[in-house]
Design a protein around this nucleic acid. Structure first.
Lengths: 230, 230
DNA sequence: CCGGTTCTTTACGCAATCCTTACGCCCGTT
DNA sequence: AACGGGCGTAAGGATTGCGTAAAGAACCGG
């Protein structure tokens, strides 16, 4: 089923489950990497460039949602979350943070593998381009370090400003609707508040554009949304 | 106003669940279509071109796996399966048949919506080069980036102009009646106002045709509607 | 508890878009 | 030749959406 060298990264602190998942995946001819903390996991995700990521939500060093959101700023790798918590709210938050699937422990190996296959099948249609550093004009955006420089000078962005910019970068060239941007930067409950966008786009332009009144990169598509030139 | 809302198709025989899922999705500003059998579902999937499909496995007229496989022969639309069966084998077969997610009844609305969002988010990333670019003459229309170029030069269209062009492209070659075009571009309340069409077709021709007075592509079918040559 | 940062709310002028109105042309019918 | 339906063309007013500013509310670290 799987091509021989499909890389999968497991981020999980429990060595028993890690071993368990690893052997299941290796039976599917995947190349498996492991990490036992979020910090190590992020580094591995950057260096190994896995095709799929299996993430335990209960890591010792950082909150699960946080880890997902961090990964999502620079990578589109499919993420399957494992968690002992059946709590619906937990599921929703993980999925909205950017996870693609959520599997409750204990789970059966066949189901895990089937969900892995489903995610890989889907992402094979997409075309993989994880870009930890993105540039336009004099701007350089490092998604991993969350740092932006403009002509070498560091630019400070607030969390929402950064999420907005990250969303635009992820689909640079393409128009993102108001609804999409609001959902990505604020969350699914804010889809109607398009006036927020005007304020934050203004701030982003103020910080990034040469002439904020006539933007070169952060472009308006009236009645639809915004678009990052590319 | 109305951002281009995402179309979702529910194929489910139980009217209670159908209603239930519909209202949940409509709260998320989706445009919802329904079908109560696999046969009708397949037709709807073809004509409506939904962005997401929610499929009950226990349909009266055909086996669930079969339906999925049938759809997958011609469509890559994300499919979320609903089923009363918790049986792991059932899950594996549905996922391997081509489903993207599997949700066991009874499920909570928040989880369903979160999984819907996850699937839509994922499928919105469909590759830049891989997908629908329509060409006619020197015109190139990229539906995903929402950009139009004419001989390489970018052409700006207003939201209504774009929807009108998109409707014509969707049935390129065939005639679309005034009523159909008005409904697609303005909404169901505007079916009678055919004078709008004259104005906007004029503008489209002005922007796209070599000689707007003698259109090569945006053709009039007197007394009926318009047609995109192709 | 305080000061600073970030987020949210409110308000208004301007620009893009949409809608309305008007008129002229072509063409088949009377 | 006059008429009317259907369409194309033009221009201006109405509406909506966007950019901008500023101030209050919530949040966070000390």
């Amino acid at each position: 089923m799987n091509a021989p060298s499909l890389r999968v990264l497991i981020i999980e602190d429990d060595p028993v489950i890690r071993r368990f998942v690893r052997s299941a995946l290796e039976a599917e001819a995947c190349e498996v990497f492991e990490a036992d903390t979020a910090a190590r996991g992020e580094i591995e995700a950057g260096t190994r460039q896995p095709a799929l990521l299996i993430l335990d939500l209960g890591l010792p060093d950082r909150d699960g949602q946080d880890v997902i959101r961090g990964l999502r700023t620079w990578s589109q790798v499919p993420i399957i979350v494992l968690s002992a918590r059946t709590n619906e709210d937990e599921k929703v938050r993980a999925l909205d943070a950017g996870a693609d699937d959520y599997l409750v422990k204990p789970f059966g190996v066949p189901e895990l593998l089937a969900r892995v296959r489903a995610q890989l099948r889907r992402s094979a249609l997409i075309g993989h381009e994880a870009q930890p550093v993105f540039c336009f004009g004099q701007i350089e955006v490092n998604m991993i370090e969350r740092r932006i420089t403009r002509a070498g000078e560091e630019v400070h962005l607030t969390p929402i400003e950064f999420r907005l910019l990250a969303a635009l970068i992820r689909s640079h060239g393409r128009v993102m609707t108001h609804r999409q941007l609001l959902t990505e930067a604020w969350g699914p409950g804010y889809a109607e508040r398009s006036h927020y966008l005007r304020i934050y786009m203004k701030q982003l332009r103020e910080k990034l554009e040469r002439n904020p009144a006539q933007p070169e990169f952060l472009l308006t598509e009236t009645g639809v949304g915004y678009r990052l030139a590319g």
